[in-house]
């Protein structure tokens, strides 16, 4: 079970992404962070903390649950429903640049669902995508604006992002596939 990112590396990567956000947007004035449940949420909170340290400004941060927008919902005639969790976006997204945060970018279907969900909250000026790991194998025309690590994988492998807030430790591991 090879560890491809440890706690230090995850910390440095997020710090770098925070600086990239400030550089690219020339500050944090009309920005807001929205984490995709589950692990995008603590990542968004950490980025908000870094942005506060860098610029002295608070960036509004929310949590988005995309379950009700999944394109595989109701595809199976019989099967348990994925669990729905609460979306919490307590600010207007109208005319803001939204930084959408997720842990792993894979097929792009979660991001597609997240974009649809966000649009139901208003009309943002722009949406930028931040991911900790891009493992490839896109099935939709979606590309991240900020990537923590590009990680070429095979379809048989699985990528697990573990975070302190949820899993008790920070690491990214790759499981399975041919040795």
């Amino acid at each position: 079970m090879p560890v491809v990112m440890d706690a230090d590396r995850i910390g440095r990567t997020l710090a770098r992404i925070a600086h990239e956000i400030v550089e690219r947007n020339k500050g944090v004035d009309d920005l807001a962070l929205v984490g995709v449940r589950t692990r995008g949420v603590p990542l968004a909170r950490r980025l908000a903390r870094s942005l506060q340290e860098i610029t002295g400004h608070d960036v509004p941060t929310g949590a988005l649950d995309i379950t009700l927008y999944r394109d595989d919902l109701m595809r199976h005639a019989v099967g348990p429903q994925p669990q729905v969790r609460r979306t919490e976006i307590q600010f207007s997204i109208d005319s803001r640049k939204i930084l959408l945060v997720d842990d792993v970018l894979y097929t792009g279907r979660t991001t597609r669902a997240a974009l649809d969900a966000l649009i139901d909250f208003g009309r943002p000026k722009a949406i930028q995508l931040i991911v900790l790991v891009d493992r490839g194998h896109r099935e939709l025309p979606i590309k991240a604006d900020y990537v923590g690590k590009n990680l070429p994988t095979s379809l048989e492998e699985s990528v697990q992002v573990r975070l302190l807030e949820i899993d008790g430790q920070d690491e990214v591991v790759v499981d399975g596939g041919a040795a």
Binding site: T67, Y69, L73, M74, Q83, R86, E88, A117, D120
Partner: peptide
């Protein structure tokens, strides 16, 4: 628990989600 998530949908500007489309 699921109802808690559903309650939030009712507070949005667009109070509609596509979950049961086609049902």
């Amino acid at each position: 628990d699921t109802a808690e998530a559903m309650k939030e949908v009712g507070t949005r500007p667009i109070k509609k989600v596509p979950a049961l489309r086609g049902k």
